[in-house]
Simulated scan of single mutants.
Amino acid sequence: MLRAQLSRTLCVFAANRMTRLRAFPFVLCVLAAAAGCSRKTESASAAPQAQKQPVEVTSVVRRDLAETLTVVGSIAANESAALRAEIAGQVREVFFDEGQRVTKGQVLLKIDDSELRAQFAQAESRFKLAELSLARNQGLLETKTVSQADFDRANAEFSTATAELSLLRVRLAKTEIKAPFDGVVGGRSISPGDYVTPASVIAQIDDLSRLKIDFQIPERFIGKIKQGTSFTLRSRTLDASARVQGEVYFVSSVIDRATRASEVKGLLVEPPAGLKPGMFANVEIVLDVRKDALTVPEGSILASVRGAQLIAVKDSGSDKIAEFIPVELGLRARGFVEIVSSKTPLDEQQSIVAAGVGSLILFPGAKLDPKPLKAEIKKAE
């Protein structure tokens, strides 16, 4: 019985194996068909990649490229001073109006000097007496009537009287407050009858014959600023197209540790009436000018792990294809970049992809459909 059961098991195993062998060609046919469908699908998906990629192109151009720096500055008068009295006293009279234009040496205010004039008259009497005494002793000394000690005493009294008279003359002159330079007097803070001291500010006087501007330059640019460097000033109080020219006349020799910047001052050439001391303005300084530089728009630069690249439009028979050119960049200014060097020589008027290089699906040899650069971008150029 065991022998019969073993025989039936071998027969079933043999039958199953024959069935598997018969099904194997069918499986091969199914796999081949699937592979064929896969190849058709891949070729169908690869077909759109062969289509031309529309791109906006422009040309490599040579132009003068200027490196500029824009900072904020504060406008100041050519000269500015706070008028103060050198001696204390009561204001007798004010000789100027607020906002009046005055000249150097003009008397603006008078302090009561009655007491000083009395002292001056007293000192003047002593001076005259000392002068007569000295002259008398001079004659007596020649005749040996007085001693040398008496003559020396008379000479000393004369010198003292002279010095005292000079001192009171100076103090009397200080009772008159005069304009230190030509300028415009501001609002006054005193009136006749007020008592002023050397700490009292009478008024502000400003020389507006020319204007200055004070600004800070970061330390990394300070080596490019020197006396005579030109700049352009723009202010919100002026028309948007108005530009005021200026020239640097002072560069500080130290760097501020707190701001890491250096103080720079400049003079404005023929400033308009709209500019006033105390206003702030934008100062644009020309740091460097590259003559006849090879330039491209900033949007045409492709930044990658291999460095900066340009995508040039190259002729390939009847097609236009993409050529990736590694480049070394230089100065950037007003939306343009200087091309210092490139592995493939770039000629002027060479067509390059001008915009969207980071978002377009491009690769070396890709077919391109060049389009002119947009009109507004050309206008900006």
Rank of each mutant, 00 (worst) to 15 (best):
G99K: 09
R220P: 05
A308M: 03
G223Q: 07
L238C: 00
L268F: 13
L294S: 09
L21I: 05
R171D: 02
P218F: 14
K367V: 06
C37E: 09
Q119H: 14
A118Q: 15
V353W: 04
Q100V: 02
P48F: 12
N78S: 08
T19A: 11
F13G: 00
L109I: 03
E376I: 09
R22F: 03
E284I: 02
E115W: 09
I222A: 10
A156N: 07
E93D: 11
A23S: 05
E323G: 13
R22Q: 02
F26H: 08
V264M: 15
L373I: 06
I285G: 04
F151R: 06
S235T: 08
I87A: 06
I325G: 15
L132T: 10
T58K: 01
G335I: 01
A156I: 12
F13D: 00
D194G: 05
R332E: 03
S253R: 08
A273K: 13
D97Q: 08
G223N: 07
L65G: 01
A118I: 11
Q349P: 03
E270N: 12
V170I: 14
G307L: 01
L211T: 03
L129R: 12
R169K: 13
L134M: 14
I325Y: 07
G139W: 03
L31S: 10
P180N: 06
A50Y: 06
E381P: 08
L275Q: 02
E376G: 01
T41H: 06
T259F: 08
R153C: 06
S125M: 12
R17P: 12
A203L: 04
I202D: 00
F95R: 11
R8G: 09
A354P: 14
S59G: 14
V305N: 12
M1D: 10
V289N: 11
V72L: 13
A173P: 00
L6Q: 06
M279C: 07
R220I: 13
G278Q: 13
S235E: 05
A123Y: 08
L275V: 04
A322G: 14
L168S: 00
K128V: 14
T41I: 06
V254C: 05
V251I: 02
R8T: 11
L21E: 04
V102W: 00
I190L: 02
V353S: 12
S43H: 07
A35P: 00
K374Y: 07
E323Y: 01
A50C: 09
I352A: 07
S230Q: 04
A203S: 07
S189L: 05
A380D: 11
R169N: 12
A303P: 00
V184G: 12
A82C: 04
D347Q: 15
R20P: 03
R210Q: 04
F120V: 00
E247K: 04
T197D: 01
V102L: 02
S159K: 15
E219M: 10
S125N: 11
V283I: 15
D150N: 13
M18T: 09
T162A: 03
R3S: 10
C29V: 14
L6G: 14
P271I: 10
L373E: 12
A15D: 06
E323K: 04
A293I: 08
A135E: 13
D194F: 03
E79A: 08
A293S: 13
F250L: 05
E67F: 08
A203W: 01
V264Q: 13
